[in-house]
Computed example of a mutant assay.
Amino acid sequence: MSAGKAYRLGVLHGDGIGPEIVTAAVAVLEEAASSGGAEFECSELPLGRAAIDTHGSALPEETPAALAGVDGWLLGPHDSVSYPEPHRSRLNPSGAIRKHFDLFANIRPARAFPGGHALVGNTDLVMVRENTEGFYADRNTFAGSGEMMPTPDIAIAHGIITRAGTTRIAHEAFRLAATRRKHVTIVHKANVLRLTSGLFRDVCREVAAEYPDIEVDELHVDAATVHLVRRGDQFDVLVAENLFGDILSDLAGEVAGSLGIAPSLNAGESHAMAQAAHGSAPDIAGRDLANPVAMILSTAMLLRWLCGRHDDTRLLDVADRIERAVEATAARGVVTPDLGGTASTSGFTTSVLEAIRAGA
């Protein structure tokens, strides 16, 4: 057990609403840590449009170098489509970080809570998304973008599914399900993509045989969208390749109430990154309107991952304090406009801090 350890965290604000929601998450973390007896040292690192202006790169070399030496990090959303060339055409900062540190598992919960206005009440599921291959061409090759245009009128991208990549993400899904309601749904499109998606399905089935206590079923990705909307409360853990998992997790976030409450964790063997599932929302940036819940809950997920790595139960206590305070605040009707409320980003954050101090 790492009793007394001070955990070093990198803080990358990102673009758009990133500085607002990351600042909120850090404030909540520090308040919960002071109540829970844990200690964190947070270091801000350059990333995004501000880094282009100051360092000439959206991801300066010093940033991944520094991240390699910390225990984990918080990453705000990026708005890479607005970057000037040549930065816009390069791999976006979050994708580059995931690739550099081999953060192969993207864990995306979708859980309804009081005051959250879920489309399907009692939704409590987790999307386990393979994060390094599949049909996202910018992440599935050692070098290059994975896309090409042989002529101005033809664009080609390749998708890659490997036994090794699928095996490790399938184990992540089944290990997670063993701690929850012991049910995994394999999502694929093997009826059309017989070789690629077929390999993903088959390897997941092989891994399932190692977990006889876990119930397993499967859905084609198009059918999964329908079932999520109609009966999102009946899913436990879903496992999918990169593109399918990205799309379905966004849908699941809305089913649970709003993409603004959808957290995620990008994890590898030795590093993990808290990153909200939503984007940078430049239209509301700087207006104190953004919902910080997803970023705050992503931070709690990082603490749980760190607990598993360092066997430090103080981190579970801090994560519990954060999650209880968020739920208690929402239950009182203090929510941001995306959830039908009137609270500002700063106002919601202040209420969460008060809930932590009150022992919610």
Rank of each mutant, 00 (worst) to 15 (best):
P114R: 12
S89F: 10
L47F: 05
V128W: 11
L119W: 08
G76W: 11
P150G: 01
P84H: 06
A51Q: 06
E44S: 10
P77S: 12
S145Y: 12
T151N: 01
L67R: 07
P77D: 12
V70N: 14
K99V: 01
S80K: 08
V120Y: 04
S43R: 15
A143V: 15
P19W: 04
P93D: 03
L91W: 05
R90F: 02
R49D: 14
T141S: 04
E30S: 13
G144V: 09
D15E: 06
L75P: 05
E20I: 09
T132Q: 09
G115Q: 14
Y83A: 03
M149L: 10
V22A: 00
P77V: 09
E41I: 10
A27D: 11
D124F: 11
G14D: 09
P46V: 07
R49L: 15
M127A: 04
W73T: 08
M148E: 08
S82V: 00
D102P: 05
T23N: 13
A58N: 05
L75E: 09
N122S: 14
M149G: 00
E39F: 05
I97K: 04
P114I: 03
G121A: 13
G116M: 01
R108P: 00
V126M: 13
G56V: 02
V128R: 04
R49A: 14
W73P: 02
L119S: 01
M148P: 02
N122Y: 13
M127E: 05
F104V: 00
V81F: 14
L67M: 03
G134V: 04
H78P: 00
P86L: 10
G115F: 11
V120M: 02
I107K: 01
V128P: 06
S43A: 15
M127S: 01
E41R: 14
L103M: 06
T23E: 14
E85L: 12
P114W: 05
V28Q: 06
A110G: 01
L103D: 07
I21M: 10
R49G: 14
P150Q: 06
G56F: 07
